[in-house]
């Protein structure tokens, strides 16, 4: 769930930023989307990407933990019943 929200928000922000860029520099939104990730706006993209990956790892780990807790909770409930 959290991973999903992460991707969803990531892409929404991507589109928003690309929209602004395309409006400012007068090119189409597709170009804007492309430029944003491949045009080296950031000099040290490595750090950012690693930050993103850390965030993603956090998401996945939390999701797995939540899923397990839920499963356990369900089992406990089932036993009680």
């Amino acid at each position: 769930m959290i991973t999903l929200s992460y991707f969803l928000t990531f892409s929404s922000l991507w589109v928003l930023t690309a929209l602004f860029d395309s409006a400012l520099y007068h090119y189409s939104i597709w170009e804007g989307l492309k430029y944003l990730l491949f045009n080296e706006i950031s000099m040290d993209m490595v750090y950012l990407i690693s930050g993103l990956l850390i965030g993603l790892a956090f998401c996945i780990v939390t999701d797995i933990r939540l899923y397990r807790n839920k499963k356990k909770g369900n089992q406990a409930k089932g036993n009680k019943n």
């Binding site: 769930m1 928000t9 950012l48 930050g51 993103l52 956090f58 998401c59 939390t62 939540l66």
Partner: peptide, 28 residues
């Protein structure tokens, strides 16, 4: 996010902070 996904907001904090860091640079 807590409202939409019905999960405590703490779980979102670190990943989305990283997202903010990412876009703070790419924003312009």
């Amino acid at each position: 996010l807590e409202y939409i996904y019905k999960k405590p907001f703490r779980y979102f904090s670190i990943p989305f902070a990283m997202l903010v860091a990412f876009y703070s640079v790419l924003i312009s």
